[in-house]
Simulated assay, not measured.
Amino acid sequence: METRPRLEIRNLIRRFDGRAVVDDVSLSVMPGQVTCLLGPSGCGKSTTLRMIAGVEMQDEGSIWVDGKLICDTHFRIPPERRSIGLMFQDFALFPHLSVADNVAFGLSGSRDEKRARVEEMLKRVDLHRFLDAWPHNLSGGEQQRVALARALAPRPRIMLMDEPFSGLDNRLRDDIRDETLAVLKEEDAAVLLVTHEPEEAMRMADEIALMRNGKVVQRGSPYHIYNAPADRQAVAFFSDINVIRGKVQGALTDTPFGQFLAPGVADGQEVEIVIRPQHLKIDFDRNGQGPLPTPQDGTPARGVVERARFMGNESLVEFRMDHDGSILKATVPNVFLPRPGKPLWLTIRRDRCFVFPARRG
């Protein structure tokens, strides 16, 4: 089993006008692994990709492929010799070349060898019937598959993908993502995918590197990133959040939903208890004198409905809480649209709450 990373970047830094847009980024990608650089626009994702591709030079750090240095601040292998495939949002197909000639672009070998590889790749993406078609006669999804075939035709060891699916409509996107992922896995390439969409990262990645302000703030499997977030911003990047503030005393903080542990936080310091709307539960059996809550659900607290909206497969209900007038949001499966002004009791899933020191400012 392969134990050496196919791609490794060490302490990459890129500055513009004295500001580090990529700030000491390190990561590795194994053969056959899909790693996603996930983060908001402007966080340094695409700049990192351009440095790996060789179209942007780093100010510090190094890039390695299969254990061999390909670029640092003194030594640089040119982009065309790095065995790296590229896919971008706009597909970048040549409009004056047929589908077959687009896929053949960049291939070496005899004419027959190139033709055989083109046919193999177009069959793999189910577009063999469009060998002689022009790109403008294809749909967006078909153009994306041609771009994938072209990128994989030279058998790159590494595939870099920069928001490759964002130009597709929502209905088509999921199918194209799944088809692309299957082909990439077959080729055993190391894949580095850039996206700002958490759903795309969760769907495609074996590992997510969450970026913010030029830094990787957390790395791990999609499950780990979602269920053990590093901070409040990491929780909020994947979903809406509710935030309950409290002050610590004896490693505990009091809230309307009972006490929460805050280990390692000094007495007197404020903490933020973060919970996703799907884990704020409405207690339909309680009207103030109902059954006692379970330890997992903590103490019920009352809120008054501000508004309710049906979102397609769930309903979003906003409550103004009695204890401090704050607004908390809950999602409920299917249709649940209580009238504004209706009081309801709420509980929270303690095992689904995250406790962080309060942000200053």
Rank of each mutant, 00 (worst) to 15 (best):
V25K: 01
M30D: 03
P31Q: 12
C36D: 08
C36F: 00
C36G: 01
G44T: 13
T47Y: 10
V55M: 15
E56T: 11
Q58F: 05
S62C: 03
I70A: 05
D72A: 09
D72S: 08
T73F: 00
H74G: 11
P78K: 14
E80L: 07
M87H: 05
F91I: 03
A92Y: 07
A92S: 10
F94C: 03
H96E: 09
K114N: 03
R115G: 14
R115S: 05
A116W: 00
D126I: 08
F130M: 07
A133Q: 04
L138A: 05
E142P: 02
L148K: 02
P154M: 10
P156D: 13
L160N: 06
G167C: 05
N170H: 07
N170F: 15
L172R: 04
D175F: 10
R177G: 01
K185M: 02
A190P: 00
L192D: 02
L192T: 04
L193D: 03
L210N: 01
K215M: 08
V217P: 00
Y223Q: 12
Y226M: 08
P229G: 10
V235Y: 06
F238V: 10
F238R: 05
I241T: 07
G246Q: 06
G250R: 07
A251T: 08
L252Q: 12
L252M: 14
G264P: 02
D267Q: 05
E270F: 10
V271N: 08
E272G: 11
K281Y: 15
I282F: 07
F284A: 06
N287Q: 14
G288D: 08
G288S: 10
P291N: 14
P291G: 13
T299M: 08
A301N: 09
E314V: 04
E314K: 09
E318H: 13
F319D: 01
G325H: 04
L328V: 15
A330I: 13
P333G: 07
K342P: 05
P343A: 07
P343I: 07
T347F: 12
I348W: 06
D351Q: 15
F354E: 06
R360T: 15
